[in-house]
Simulated scan of single mutants.
Amino acid sequence: MKNLFYLILMYFTLGSCIREAPLNPEADIEEFNIDAQFLSSSTIIDQANSKILIYLKPDAYQSGVSPALKLSKGATVSPASGTLVNFSQPVFYTVKSESGENLKTYEVDVVEIGNWTFNFETWTENAQNKYEYPLDNNVQLWSSGNPGAALAGVMQQTDAYPTKSTINGLNGTKAAEMRTIPGTTLSEFLGIKLIPGSFFLGDFNSNQALINPLAATEFGQPYFQLPEKFTGYYTYTPGGNFQDQNGNTVPGQTDRFSLYAVLYNGPTRLNGTNINTSDQVIARAKLPNTTAPTAFTRFEVPFNYIPGKTPGNNLMVAIVASSSYQGDQYRGAIGSKLTVDSLRIIAK
């Protein structure tokens, strides 16, 4: 009888624990899988801005595809995973958390870059953290280190972030401005004394931001020709005091910017850990950074193809810019400022 009593007590105790376990409040799309035969590049899930970027081949765009979704535990989604969807009209997926307390709506954008000239006239703001990013035909093609700066505790106002728009662009238009700013309390605790302004074609993967910040910068968009030249306009002002990764002044050293384009074999994107070393790279076009013009100056640099490299069927082009050329090592000068406008990739 005593054993039976303990069994009954255990049953109700465990039952009470199970009933009291909180339901999952998360409402995320963790994976958005489309058969690779329908894609020209891998899909991007931009959690920070609730957007999904897909790169459909023309036939798939016309006929539609059936994405398979992986959601947060217990969450539900509409349209359901596996539903045939045609993307000729705007498509939105709404996720409801297991607990029922949270809804998250993702906008799905089909990316097709017809004109590889970028003038940075239209910008929008991240609703939560207030940093800016540009739009091309209402699609986000460019990203920056701003989402990482937000996680590091940068003040939630547009002017506080290292990358933003400026009205002081070419001929009085808008442009993209990058500044090297001081580290935050949190970043300095992690050993990061400064945060460079960075701007690039591609996506910032927030899932990697605290684990491996360089891997969070995913570079490139699909390209369907062979590029010949990289052109555009820029201004640059180096900050006054170059410092190493420990925050110590380096006498006699002046900061420089970084601005280059890379052609590589996709569909897997390169990132800050391998953009300079990967065997996927086919050609590079790098602007010499030995001058610091205060007025907009035009540049034109050729793509230098690496001997023996063969272009594949999933070509990608990345454009990468930074206000401090050693910013990936957290070296530079606070106050360094790079502004770029009318960047263009010219095909052969």
Rank of each mutant, 00 (worst) to 15 (best):
S324F: 09
L170E: 08
M316E: 15
Y234I: 01
A209C: 04
G232D: 12
D279K: 09
Y264I: 04
Y161V: 06
Q37Y: 06
I8C: 14
F204D: 00
I346D: 09
E107S: 06
R298G: 12
L84Q: 13
Q47G: 00
A48H: 02
K193S: 07
Q128I: 12
D136V: 09
D109N: 11
F199H: 08
F230K: 05
R284H: 07
L343W: 10
V95S: 03
Q280V: 11
P302Q: 12
M1R: 14
F87A: 12
P267A: 06
P22N: 13
Y93G: 05
T43N: 09
S81E: 01
I8H: 06
W123D: 05
L338K: 07
N3E: 15
V262W: 00
L287T: 12
I44F: 14
A321S: 14
G335L: 10
K164C: 05
A176I: 05
P267F: 10
P162R: 10
S206V: 15
K309H: 08
E125M: 14
V77H: 04
V85Q: 08
A80K: 11
I319R: 02
P22W: 13
G64A: 03
N265W: 04
N289R: 13
L287P: 08
L135W: 14
L103V: 03
L170T: 07
G100N: 05
K348D: 12
T163C: 06
A68D: 11
T268N: 07
Y305M: 11
S198V: 10
E26L: 11
S278V: 06
Q243Y: 03
W123T: 06
L56H: 00
P58D: 01
P90D: 00
K51I: 14
P182F: 08
L141D: 05
A292F: 01
A295Q: 15
Y93V: 02
A152Q: 12
E98R: 05
L4Q: 10
Y133E: 02
P90G: 02
V139H: 14
A318R: 05
N129M: 15
I334C: 14
E20P: 03
V250R: 15
V340S: 04
Q62R: 04
K73R: 09
I211L: 15
F303I: 02
T13W: 15
K73I: 08
F92D: 15
T94H: 04
P307S: 08
K51W: 10
G64R: 01
D136R: 04
I192L: 03
A21E: 06
N49K: 02
